[in-house]
């Protein structure tokens, strides 16, 4: 299964996400500048860069939480426009995990997971519960199913958030700094789940500062600064032989300690 990079998984030829000349402004602030990014099915992309570089905005454009102003974004053959039907269609296929977990505090863990299957997929209640329990077992917290999010630790909450997204059986998973709000001792339990997900062949885009995760899992690291993609390379190349000066500076800072 191993290829030259030591990666266990192969990537298919099918294009999953295609962003072309995407531009976005927040008022006068040009937050995304001519972004071109193509992601094949099964690819694991880590997006790195200093804060304010537009990496979160970039992945939030992929499920249209942020509308883009120019350019085209095509996900699994569906182009994102202002057409609400298409946006909903894309969102059904794209799961997202947030920095702040964003679990629904008034629902139990199980209800958090069954909400979308019940309302969006119109799944019968029993099927939705079975499905949710399957994914809660996969993230190793089935015993917390009847608790409320407020009763769980941060790491457990983030694993529930991953299970909740997986219950929609997405083709792509977006992670927006999934470990940044966690205490250090909880980061590993979340990363472990993400690594497993990658090993199962999930297409993933992950904004993170966890360079260890990038080295181990990613097959491409995308470095952003000032709203632009500065450099794209496989992790080995990215970490050992960065080409751009800004990339070098960033790596020097982040790997210094």
């Amino acid at each position: 299964m191993s290829d030259g990079n030591g990666k266990r998984l192969t990537v298919s030829d099918k294009v999953m996400i295609e962003m072309k000349a995407v531009n976005k402004w927040f008022g006068d602030f040009h937050v995304l500048k001519d972004i071109d990014l193509t992601v094949q099915e099964g690819e694991r992309i880590v997006i790195a860069g200093p804060s304010g570089s537009g990496k979160s905005t970039l992945i939030r454009c992929i499920n249209h939480l942020e509308p883009h102003d120019e350019g085209s974004i095509v996900i699994d053959g569906i182009e994102l426009t202002e057409d609400l039907k298409r946006i909903d269609e894309v969102r059904r296929e794209v799961g997202m995990v947030f920095q702040q977990f964003n679990l629904f505090p008034h629902m139990t863990v199980l209800e958090n997971c069954t909400l979308a299957p019940l309302w969006v997929r119109k799944m019968p209640e029993k099927d939705a519960r079975d499905l949710a329990m399957r994914f809660l077992e996969r993230v190793r917290i089935p015993e917390q199913a009847s608790k409320y999010p407020g009763q769980l630790s941060g790491g457990q909450q983030q694993r529930v958030a991953i299970a909740r997204a997986l219950c929609m059986n997405p083709k792509v998973m977006l992670f927006d700094e999934p470990t940044s709000a966690l205490d250090p001792e909880m980061i590993k339990e979340v990363l472990d789940v993400m690594v497993e997900l990658a090993e199962e062949g999930m297409t993933m885009l992950c904004v993170t500062h966890e360079m260890g995760f990038a080295r181990e899992v990613a097959n491409r690291v995308v470095f952003m600064d000032g709203g632009e993609i500065i450099e794209e390379a496989p992790p080995q190349e990215f970490f050992s032989a960065p080409k751009n000066a800004r990339t070098k500076e960033f790596l020097a800072q982040i790997l210094a300690h």
């Binding site: 969102r91 947030f98 964003n102 629904f104 909400l115 979308a116 309302w119 909740r164």
Partner: peptide, 29 residues
């Protein structure tokens, strides 16, 4: 927090589903 609405929309819920199931039950409470 806006993240509640965003999380609901990201799961594929419509505006009214997100409001009815996620935002309003908390807001009214």
């Amino acid at each position: 927090p806006p993240g509640q609405y965003e999380a609901a929309r990201a799961l594929g819920l419509t505006y009214w589903q997100a409001m009815g199931q996620v935002v309003l039950p908390q807001a009214l409470r």
